[in-house]
Nucleic acid binder design. Structure first.
Ligand SMILES: [Zn+2]
Ligand SMILES: [Zn+2]
Ligand SMILES: [Zn+2]
Ligand SMILES: [Zn+2]
Lengths: 148, 148
DNA sequence: CTAAAACCTATAGTGACTGGAGCTTCAAGC
DNA sequence: GCTTGAAGCTCCAGTCACTATAGGTTTTAG
């Protein structure tokens, strides 16, 4: 257990996030508090680095923090059934699929808006006309912009 | 000019947004302030309804509020060249394309994580293993989740 | 020993709304 | 004209996941 005593800046660089992000994760109870020096500076061990890396990876895959929290807890119960982890991942996959579907219909609408001759005036502009009257839209993009 | 005097709730229902959203748009100077009754309740005209509908439509297409503000201003200058409107729309299309690309790579990573037999334990779970070690990722999804 | 770099806490800000408390006004039925 | 319930009002806090700043302290390399 030669705990390696990593200062926060080095830890941040090693996982590719901001120093404040690490302090924020500690504040919301996602990352356990590290030891402190006599002058109250944080010193992390290898376990912290792994947990933080796990968190950042899950965030990069778009999992919201509550899901990350669950996955992190599960990752410690190595004997449990993984059905729960799989369910969380599947839910995230569905959310990603919904967002892709949404964005695809937005894309085709934007492309349709832009498919017109240029150099004309606003009164004939299809971009402005479409925004002013959504019956000019072909697809039904009209739904909530569900965030991942 | 028989201004129709629509109360805020009816206006909200007619464009499919919340009452608070309308007040918020007024507060940030996006929607002009309406007339008020003697008791200080808002009463809108048809012009307001059109502007608000334009704003909501642009938002549904994912334009951020600063872009909506520009587009709204342009929509009043019917004689101007529409190059600027087109540029804003094209920028938005590019943002949408970036997001779709990002989400597609997230999707395939999530699908890869989930493609394993079920009924096993956490210690063998590919979902958890992948999160713990991103070298198990095939694609390079590791980038910022650029918001639209 | 000095000076710069890194660290600390606390607070506020981001975008685009959303929700609530506590009050007032409006409109319909009687 | 009166009652009553729906709808409106202002102001403020909360959402999510950070990010930035101010103003101070600690560490570390030279
Ligand atoms: Zn145009
Ligand atoms: Zn539309
Ligand atoms: Zn599994
Ligand atoms: Zn990965």
């Amino acid at each position: 257990m030669g705990e390696v005593s990593i200062p926060i800046g080095k830890l941040a660089r090693s996982v590719g996030c901001k120093v404040q992000t690490i302090r924020y994760y500690e504040q919301i109870g996602l990352l356990p508090p590290p030891t402190r020096t006599a002058g109250a500076q944080r010193r992390y061990g290898e376990g912290h680095r792994q947990k933080l890396s796990f968190i950042r990876h899950a965030r990069e895959l778009g999992f919201p923090l509550p899901a990350v929290r669950e996955l992190l807890a599960l990752s410690d119960e190595t004997d449990s059934d993984c059905a729960k982890a799989d369910r969380i991942a599947r839910r995230q996959l569905e959310a990603v699929n919904r967002r892709i579907a949404m964005l695809s219909s937005l894309r085709s609408e934007l492309e349709r808006m832009l498919r017109h001759r240029h150099g004309h005036r606003i009164r004939d502009c299809r971009v402005i006309a479409t925004l002013a009257d959504h019956t000019l839209c072909s697809q039904d993009h009209h739904a909530e912009l569900a965030e991942s």
